[in-house]
Design a protein around this nucleic acid. Structure first.
Length: 255
DNA sequence: ATGACCCCAAGCTGGGGA
């Protein structure tokens, strides 16, 4: 039996309800993790529940917000990232089919000066601690979402970012490596060790047409799940749709 | 040096995004 799940920063679920509905019809994933839903729970479209998906929504007004849609029974385990002391709606976690799905929207870090950037590193520290706790307990888990980090120079087009951008700052990349090297597997880099696998293209400057993109949406797998990995694919077609999100779904299939 | 694009809450402008 295979399991298909995806991560998608949707940049307002209310603006893109129809796009997501259409995508779900065509792909029929077991689980879809959304970020930047940009609404409160009571504003989240009802259509997904009507289609038979269970929903776990952690929202707030205007900004951030994450949600998990699941075809299977779901047990919500966290509505905030343990150890992260900020109120923003950036993490929701649920156990589905014996697997823990941690759906995260990591702070961008470019706003609010160094104080704002430190919040990004704080989130990374808390996430790494949480991952190590689950590794020690030998849980099967996936940490997926918008990490707002390009792990290496191959993960952004040469002209896509300033060298001082928080997505490529050395401290951001070091924090990423500390997390991954705790014992997790970057799914995309198993099926495609090198080269471009962008998941984001800016709205400005014809970035998609020029393929001036970033790889910032990631799925990290615990050891046993890494053994089951079949395919990983950013769904680039979605970026060519009318009024798309600036991110595309990252689709993962496990055996 | 500035704006570019898009979303949101407000309210016709500004913050945040990446």
């Amino acid at each position: 039996m295979s399991l298909v799940f995806a991560s998608w920063n949707i940049n307002s679920i209310r603006q893109r309800e129809a796009l997501v509905s259409d995508w779900l019809e065509r792909h029929q994933p077991d689980v879809l993790c959304l970020q930047e839903i940009k609404c409160e729970e009571h504003q989240f479209p009802a259509v997904f529940a009507e289609k038979g998906y269970q929903t776990a929504i952690v929202g707030q007004k205007s900004y951030n917000g994450v949600a998990i849609l699941s075809r299977h029974p779901m047990n919500v385990t966290h509505r905030r990232l343990p150890g992260f002391g900020h109120e923003a709606a950036r993490y929701v976690e649920a156990e589905i089919q014996g697997i823990v799905f941690g759906n995260l929207y990591l702070p961008n870090g470019n706003s609010g000066g160094e104080t704002g950037y430190d919040i990004k590193l704080d989130f990374f520290d808390a996430l790494t601690h949480h991952a190590r706790t689950m590794l020690a307990a030998e849980r099967d888990f996936i940490l997926l979402g918008d990490y707002n980090v390009c792990p290496t120079a191959e993960d952004h087009a040469p002209d896509a970012l300033s060298p001082t951008d928080s997505l490529v700052r050395p401290e951001s990349r070091a924090a990423w490596r500390r997390l991954v090297w705790s014992g997790l597997t970057d799914a995309q880099r198993v099926v495609q060790p090198q080269g471009r696998a962008f998941t984001f293209w800016d709205y400005q400057g014809m970035a998609f047409q020029r393929d001036s993109g970033l790889r910032i949406d990631h799925a990290l797998l615990s050891p046993r799940l890494a053994e089951r990995l079949e395919t990983v694919q950013p769904d680039r077609e979605e970026r060519a749709k009318n009024q798309p999100s600036d991110h595309v779904p990252l689709i993962v299939r496990l055996q």
